[in-house]
């Protein structure tokens, strides 16, 4: 083999090996690298109460309640499959809204409530001006009001 093609071959082999190893490592990382559990993951994972974990999902519409003590907020986190009741004492982030994503650090209580110690707002990939957002919401409401046929 000419030196040039030999070098090409060796480098190609090294890159291929690296890519293959990365692809092999992926399923393992898939389990370990998740930053949070979605409610359905949590239901499937059978987590012990009291173990620290991270829960992520959407704040269920109409579930947010402020308790009379003034600092505690309760809501449900959903992934449209399962939902988990969450209790958080503290100042909620600016972007905390119903229907938006959140990630909570905390522990699952024995009664099935998730006691959050920190709360982060997660946002989605949509960016639009307020007028467009209103128009979208209006169109969705109309579509919902129209009887399905």
């Amino acid at each position: 083999m000419k030196p040039k093609s030999q070098r090409l071959f060796l480098i190609g082999a090294a890159v291929a090996a690296l890519i293959i190893s990365a692809l092999l490592a992926m399923p393992a990382l898939r389990e370990g690298a998740a930053y949070f559990y979605a409610p359905a993951d949590l239901a499937a994972a059978d987590v012990e109460p009291g173990q620290p974990l991270r829960l992520g999902g959407l704040v269920e519409e109409g579930s947010v309640m402020r308790l009379p003590d003034g600092v505690t907020t309760t809501f449900r986190v959903t992934d449209r499959l399962e939902s988990v009741p969450v209790r958080y004492s503290g100042i909620v982030p600016d972007l905390f809204r119903e229907g938006q994503g959140v990630i909570a650090d905390g522990r699952l209580q024995a009664d099935g409530t998730f006691a959050a110690e920190t709360l982060l707002a997660k946002h989605d990939e949509n960016y639009m001006p307020p007028e467009v957002a209103e128009a979208v919401a209006r169109a969705e409401a109309e579509a919902k009001a129209r009887p399905a046929n």
């Binding site: 992926m26 898939r30 998740a34 949070f36 989605d124 990939e125």
Partner: peptide
């Protein structure tokens, strides 16, 4: 896409 991340998916 592979993992649950705080960062949102591609726009």
């Amino acid at each position: 896409e592979w993992w649950n991340t705080l960062h949102q998916p591609a726009s």
